[in-house]
């Protein structure tokens, strides 16, 4: 239960208004730090959730596919420039953010271990190309896409995505081309 406590602590810190406001004031931090931290909080809390209702997850999401589909949809939604804008101006979108992203973490924790290697690789590769596209999109966009952020911030976010994509590519390459011992090869 150590993870759960940590998760709750993280979540509480994230919803403290000054911290929230600060994080949201910088576009890069908003999308690439606050979002992932919220997901991480969910993942940690997932420890308790999965223990509390193990059978529900087993029954309804035995192979992890339903969970991962929801994860993909929710994260895709949060990648729209509009969702980010609206979370600043409309309170119920902000509320939805603080509920849906931790939910992503919980679902991800359950689904990820149930997915086969093929499923995991598929999801991973899709995020890789999606992040690459987002990077290009935010850097190259000739207009300001978000009303609440300056263009320069938008480009910084774009570069953030490019860096993440780069790291993901390096990860894939080292997994596929630098073989370790047989045992860890099995878990791409």
């Amino acid at each position: 239960m150590k993870q759960t406590k940590l998760g709750i602590l993280l979540y509480v810190i994230l919803i403290i208004p000054p911290i929230t406001t600060y994080m949201e004031s910088i576009m890069l931090v908003h999308m690439l730090i606050q979002f992932p931290l919220l997901i991480l909080a969910g993942w940690l809390i997932g420890e308790w959730v999965l223990e509390r209702w193990p059978y529900h997850f087993l029954k309804w999401d035995a192979n992890g596919i339903a969970g991962i589909i929801l994860v993909i949809f929710i994260t895709t939604y949060w990648m729209f420039p509009r969702a980010m804008d609206e979370s600043l101006t409309i309170w119920h979108i902000e509320l939805f953010k603080f509920i849906s992203l931790p939910l992503v973490g919980i679902l991800l924790r359950n689904s990820w271990r149930k997915l086969t290697i093929i499923g995991r690789s598929f999801v991973f590769l899709n995020y890789l190309s999606m992040f690459g596209l987002m990077g290009w999109f935010y850097i190259d966009s000739p207009v300001q896409i978000c009303n609440n952020y300056l263009e320069i911030e938008q480009q910084m976010l774009g570069w953030g995505f490019v860096v993440i994509t780069g790291i993901m590519i390096v990860y894939v390459l080292q997994k596929c081309f630098i073989s370790g011992t047989k045992s860890n090869v099995n878990q791409i």
């Binding site: 029954k59 309804w60 999401d61 035995a62 192979n63 596919i65 339903a66 969970g67 589909i69 929801l70 993909i72 949809f73 929710i74 939604y77």
Partner: peptide
């Protein structure tokens, strides 16, 4: 149940 869950996930996601 899995199939239902998958369909539900797709429907909910699309609605979102």
């Amino acid at each position: 149940r899995n199939v239902v869950a998958i369909i539900l996930a797709i429907v909910l996601g699309s609605l979102l």
